[in-house]
């Protein structure tokens, strides 16, 4: 039936999306957290207008990073509570397809939060509407976050500390992604020379590729009964 890995991945992603459509647990949590984080940042930084222009891409990516950690933790906790992982392991599908399915759903959730954040940041930080170049950076950034998060969250859910361990494991490994995405966004916002945009976008894609390769290769070893 689901011998075809692509179809298996799509149906696993579809399952996560359907579950989310019915419960609206994950996205609500992530969106509320992201909104609160932006408010906290805007109070904490108390910046003047030029300062805000420099800080906004940092606020965007750090908020996204933490929101995605929250989402990943909730996502694996749900699977665990309902025995989803056991069922997925029993299913006759390749482990890579399970990874791809979970990754797709998680990337989509993070992307939705990101697209929600952009207009919010425009309003709250009183900046002109976001440049279109940013729309080139946000999807690969979300994909990378989802790739490394899906892999690591499947690991931390098996530990004693559960969800509190994910940020400790994720933040150092996600740093290359954060740096490249931040630099590219800064270039898109005009804080850096325009030539920088292409360089950092390419590096971001390279980081994505490394995370994806690591995920596909290692997920099998993570998800063993």
């Amino acid at each position: 039936m689901l011998r075809d890995p692509l179809r298996a991945a799509l149906s696993i992603a579809g399952k996560d999306l359907r579950a989310e459509l019915r419960s609206r647990e994950l996205l609500g949590l992530m969106a509320l957290f992201a909104l609160l984080a932006i408010l906290v940042f805007s109070f904490a930084l108390e910046l003047d207008r030029p300062g805000r222009k420099d800080a906004v891409s940092g606020v965007l990516w750090v908020t996204l990073l933490f929101a995605s950690i929250l989402g990943h933790n909730r996502s694996v906790a749900l699977e665990r509570e309902h025995g989803g992982f056991d069922a997925l392991l029993l299913a006759p599908v390749a482990r890579g397809a399970i990874f791809a399915g979970k990754l797709l759903a998680n990337a989509l959730f993070t992307l939705i939060i990101a697209l929600l954040l952009l207009p919010l940041l425009t309003v709250l930080y009183n900046l002109p509407a976001f440049p279109p170049a940013l729309l080139l950076i946000v999807p690969p950034g979300c994909l990378g976050l989802a790739a490394i998060g899906t892999l690591l969250a499947a690991m931390t859910v098996q530990t004693r500390a559960r969800d509190s361990l994910l940020p400790v494991l994720l933040l150092p490994v996600a740093l290359p992604l954060l740096v490249t995405a931040l630099r590219a966004s800064n270039a898109a916002l005009g804080n850096l020379p325009e030539t920088e945009l292409q360089t950092w976008l390419l590096l971001l894609l390279l980081v994505d590729l490394i995370y994806l390769a690591a995920g596909f290769l290692l997920y099998e070893s993570v998800l063993e009964a």
Binding site: L151, A161, L165, V173, A214, L218, S221, V222
Partner: peptide
């Protein structure tokens, strides 16, 4: 991470994955 997993086989497996990353 290594100290946080009780089952020795699981500990070795997950620690190996993280050491590669």
């Amino acid at each position: 991470l290594r100290n946080g997993i009780d089952n020795p086989q699981q500990r070795r497996r997950l620690a190996s994955v993280y050491a590669i990353l």
